Simulated scan of single mutants.
Amino acid sequence: MRKKLRVAAYAICVRDGQVLLARWLDDGKPKWTLPGGGMEHGEDPGDTVLREVEEETGYHVEVTGLLGVRSVRFPSRRRFGRTLDQHHVGLVYEARVTGGELRFEVGGSTDMAQWHDLDAVPALTRVPLVDDGLRLWRERPATGQPGG
């Protein structure tokens, strides 16, 4: 079985009771996610989150803390019946907007960004990363792991 490791960095930006989310295009089924994405080889994860948030939302952010790490492993089916053992490691940072203007990404993995009321998030079609990230933001666990 082929193995694939993906390391990514994401931002939780909360202001005035709202969280900034990006709409991810998952095989034509849009889902809300945290702004962020995969690290490039040799890139520092702190630089990754700054780059990805700007690409997906138009905002410039300042990292104010590392909230934790989310590690998820799952198999997926690939072409010709092959199975891929995927392992995603996501560093979740707290960040605040320092500049820029809200805009949508063009030609990327997301198609829009939007502020959402925190109490409206449970009703959104979203990826599990959103709930895990908000749990890290609210609880700030000593282990740095959601639910830990």
Rank of each mutant, 00 (worst) to 15 (best):
V53M: 06
E54I: 00
Q86P: 05
F74M: 00
E40T: 08
G68W: 03
G65F: 15
T33G: 15
T110S: 12
D111Y: 04
V61W: 01
E56P: 01
Q86M: 13
V69R: 11
P30L: 07
L102D: 10
V89W: 09
P35N: 05
Y93C: 03
P75W: 00
T110E: 14
L66F: 13
Y93Q: 08
E54T: 04
G108A: 06
L67A: 04
E94R: 01
S109P: 13
Q114W: 15
R73M: 13
R70Y: 12
A95T: 02
P30Y: 03
H41P: 14
E43W: 07
K31V: 09
P35H: 03
G90H: 06
R51K: 10
G36L: 03
H41Y: 14
L84R: 11
V69S: 03
L66N: 05
R79G: 07
G46H: 13
T110Y: 08
F104E: 14
L91I: 00
E94I: 09
V72A: 04
A95K: 03
E56N: 02
G42K: 08
Y93R: 07
E105I: 08
V92F: 08
G46S: 11
G81N: 02
P35G: 04
F74T: 04
E55M: 10
R77A: 13
V89F: 09
F80A: 11
T98R: 12
W32Y: 13
E52S: 05
F74C: 00
E54A: 02
L67I: 06
V106E: 15
L91A: 03
V63R: 01
G36T: 03
P35S: 02
R77H: 09
E55R: 11
R70A: 08
T83H: 00
P75V: 05
A113P: 12
R79L: 05
F80K: 09
G100E: 15
L67Q: 01
W32T: 01
G37C: 07
V97Y: 08
M112A: 14
V72F: 06
L66K: 09
E101K: 10
V63H: 01
G58V: 04
L50Y: 04
G90F: 08
D44P: 00
R103T: 06
E105N: 07
G46L: 13
R78D: 04
Y93N: 07
F74R: 03
M39T: 12
P30W: 01
L84W: 05
G65T: 06
